[in-house]
Amino acid sequence: MRGPHPEISGDAWADAQLLWDYHQLHHKIQSCSVIIGLGSHDLGVATQAAQLYLEGWAPLIVFSGANSPTTMERFPRGEAVHYREHAVSLGVPDSAILLETHATNTAENFEFSRGVLQAASVPIISVLLVSKPYEQRRSLATVMKIWPEVDVVCASERPSLAEYIDSIGSAKRVVDMLVGTLQRLIEYPKKGFIVDQEIPAEAIAAYERLRDSGFDSRVIRPAKPGR
């Protein structure tokens, strides 16, 4: 039986939906010191950050991100730069945006954004953290490790899994990212990169089934031993 998308079987779709739901935190939006938008291939992060600013949830936005191999073509001037341009086009004053243009991973997003805010003498008590929908939990686990003294509220756009796949244009790519993100929640605490998250057994089982059935382009492979 096929799932809602022709690339995915019904069973795989159910597993993907389980991971999609697990990765999101459904925090209640609250007023915060700053909005931090995490750079990625998804311009929806900038859209959501702009909307939250325009609704008055924070007086300032930091967009953070250089480039990754998946964003070089789409955002040739860097993720944060393109995010700012998009937010300004939606009505956010340029003066309300700070840029962090060097981060190439999530830990650096927070380390370097904190540095930008300190350099601007902006006191930070709380962060309204905007990410891709399926990166909420990992982003929270990372900021709790890197910047534990701040209170964090996580936010993202709220498409369904099917809607998000339509926006990206590839069901396999999205499911691969769900699988890769879950693997990082399992492995990264062991490396000291993030704090532990409680992962239900059914989420781990869904991850393993999807990984073993070929949704694995974002899976971190063990390093090959040197010769």
Rank of each mutant, 00 (worst) to 15 (best):
W20N: 11
F193A: 13
Y164P: 10
L140V: 04
R173D: 07
R209Y: 11
V116N: 03
D216E: 02
G91L: 10
P148A: 05
Y53G: 05
Q197R: 07
I36Y: 07
D94M: 13
A162F: 07
A58Y: 11
H27Q: 04
H5S: 04
S64I: 14
A49K: 00
V219L: 08
T142M: 01
R221M: 11
L98S: 15
A50G: 01
A107T: 12
P69F: 14
F75Y: 10
I36P: 12
V179Y: 10
P225Q: 03
A203F: 14
I124M: 11
L178S: 02
V122P: 13
S160G: 08
M1G: 10
H5P: 04
T104M: 08
Q197N: 12
D21A: 12
E187L: 15
P69R: 15
T106N: 01
A49H: 09
I124Y: 11
E111N: 06
R158D: 12
P123L: 09
D176V: 04
H23R: 08
L98I: 11
Q48W: 02
A155H: 03
V195T: 12
P4S: 02
V153C: 10
V174L: 04
R184Q: 11
H102F: 13
V88D: 04
I168P: 03
E111Q: 13
Q48C: 08
L60R: 13
R114W: 00
H86V: 05
L129K: 07
A96R: 10
Y164T: 06
A120S: 08
W13C: 00
R74H: 13
S139T: 12
Q183A: 09
V143I: 15
V62Y: 10
E85S: 02
V45L: 06
A12P: 01
Q17F: 02
R184H: 03
G56L: 06
S33P: 01
T70R: 14
H41N: 07
M72T: 14
R2P: 05
P189F: 00
